[in-house]
Design a protein around this nucleic acid. Structure first.
Lengths: 344, 344
DNA sequence: TTGGATTCCGAAATCGATTACGTTACCGAT
DNA sequence: ATCGGTAACGTAATCGATTTCGGAATCCAA
């Protein structure tokens, strides 16, 4: 069965496509009578406007691209869910791509999305990404870009992030408040702004509590995996004066660190307190339950979508583009793994 | 900055758009000289074909729609990842929608996808869905549909599913092999084919081992949540002769069931053995680690995509449509929660 | 010099919908 | 009778790329 077109309706009624089009779109200069017959014919033929023809004519696609490092990540699932919920309500569609944390792939998929024709782009940069020329190219062709989670100061664009600094500060302060003085940190790779912020929050908390920064208590992982968490925590545990508490840059690193502790017969939190970042669902289920810093993934998706839609609208109405930098609060979720036993 | 069009190139060279188009697409009847100048001009102006114009002309959109109940589900993340990997390689894009397990929303999003113009649809039905008229409508307009995971026998279409029957059978057989005789089952809602199959596998295993089916050992949940798992397991635990082992329709139900056991001071697996279904990542991390049946989510996504692409191709070449029903093996992952202690 | 075959490119239709502009017919007013 | 006005619809351009058809120019052979 073929799709019905305006011409099909027009021919079946002996009018022109222009009349049909105007009747369907409620133009004032069409008589009530013909409007009725056109509507009836459209109904009868199951007419639906051909999307590509409309998009070509209007130069508006109602499609936004989403680029994330990795779909199989609970945090990004939350973000995507927020994006979809906002966009679907306004009739926008989502095209999903993943960069697999590769700078090259990120360039490839953004170019593909540009070629495909999107009204805008929501991007979470890969860990490898430093240069943002591929995104500036989009902007030059009037395709707005909104960054979220992993952003870059090099790109003039709206962005939505968690307050990683404050979250990290709160997490470390929570440890220090309980009297711990030797607090270690397993940090992420140096490029993404958010892991830098978490590291900065760690240092700021130490400083605020008058504690020295000790380089031997800081390790830097590259792939941010459980294995790395276990590996680096074993190094901490082997120190002459091992740390009493650990702030891990992500939950997977925290879980790996706890695995290493358990294997060596250390108890959590008695022998080492641990707090992670992201607040995955597993944190509540594990034993001990893992303290973590929750990121508002769903809200990040929603807010980023709203910013993007605003810029798309501004662009269409030839208004000046307004960029916004949103920073959403992170909240520490205190559970067993970071609670110092009361008696000493 | 405006996008460059064929006309821009043509005017800058004093030729017509037809020549430019043919030069760019390597038609044989264009001289080497003009081909060179055209290619150079295209490069210089950063020409990229206008996607909507091409799609309108060719009536092929290189976009497929994906409809799933819930994006925030590790299994679906795996599936999506598989879909994206296959589709991206062939230049296809994914439009993602979620039905939130609502029949109404499923209809809405499929109609939106049809209106948007997709070459095909990959659908996992919602738990509520019984009637499939909205998908048949797509097929009538030559938009192929491939079902995965939650399928319906009412729709004549290709499908890819896990072998839920065999997975369930293996799980229960694994329990029975260890000498358990009182094995309970918390089943899912009655509509989706896969939870029916899991129930059927449970019954078949009982029958194969010469054990009676006891209705008091079977409960049916509606939302398939942890809470329901806990709730129904408490009912089992309160029986005069409580079951020794439990096969839960999903991991979340299994986790809920274990929570109920722990709260009541029962030990797992000593007082009740538990095995789930889906093999979430958490199963390995929990204590005790949870046995489960792994579903090949990534492969399901890949295979479903390949089937859909085949049907799109067959449709374009006016070949007869061939449907395939793929059933991928499920493997039981035996961990602590289902291992009967050796001594009695 | 002429016929035919090639080579290379332009003209124009097409995909389907939208819309600026023009046209017809009919109205009442002068 | 002529004019202005308006309701209602048709004409045709447009969005950008593709493709069929055909035409001009060139070349070779007779």
């Amino acid at each position: 069965m073929k799709r019905a077109t305006l011409r099909d309706i027009a021919q079946s009624l002996g009018v022109t496509v222009a009349t049909v089009s105007r009747a369907l779109k409620n133009y004032p200069d069409i008589s009530k009578a013909t409007k009725q017959t056109v509507l009836a014919a459209a109904e009868r033929l199951h007419y639906a406007p051909h999307p590509m023809a409309v998009k070509l004519r209007q130069q508006a696609y109602k499609v936004v691209g989403v680029v994330i490092p990795d779909i199989i990540h609970p945090f990004f699932s939350d973000v995507i869910s927020g994006i979809v919920d906002v966009m679907e309500d306004l009739g926008y569609h989502i095209i999903l791509s993943q960069s697999n944390e590769s700078y090259e792939k990120e360039i490839r998929v953004t170019q593909m999305l540009q070629a495909t024709g999107v009204d805008g782009l929501l991007v979470c940069l890969s860990n490898e990404t430093v240069d943002v020329g591929h995104l500036q190219a989009l902007q030059e062709y009037d395709v707005p870009v909104v960054l979220f989670d992993k952003i870059s100061p090099l790109l003039e664009a709206s962005s939505v992030v968690t307050n990683d600094f404050q979250g990290a500060y709160d997490a470390v302060a929570h440890l220090l408040d309980q009297g711990y003085t030797r607090v270690a940190h397993i940090k992420g790779p140096p490029h993404p702004e958010n892991t830098r912020q978490r590291f900065a929050g760690y240092r700021a908390a130490l400083a605020a509590y008058g504690l020295p920064y000790r380089a031997e208590y800081v390790a830097e992982c590259t792939h941010v995996t459980q294995d790395e968490g276990a590996f680096f925590n074993r190094q901490f545990m082997a120190l002459a004066e091992p740390p009493e508490a650990l702030f891990a840059v992500t939950d997977s690193v925290a879980i790996g660190a706890i695995t290493a502790l358990k294997e060596a017969g250390w108890r959590v939190p008695q022998d080492m307190a641990v707090i992670g970042f992201s607040d995955w669902a597993v944190c509540r289920l594990l034993e001990p339950s893992i303290s973590s810093v929750s990121q508002p993934g769903y809200d990040i998706g929603r807010r980023a979508s709203e910013l993007l839609l605003r810029e798309i609208r501004q662009l269409r109405e030839a208004l000046p583009l307004e960029h916004s930098q949103l920073v959403l609060d992170a909240r520490i979720q205190i559970r067993q793994s970071s609670q110092r036993p009361v008696s000493v």
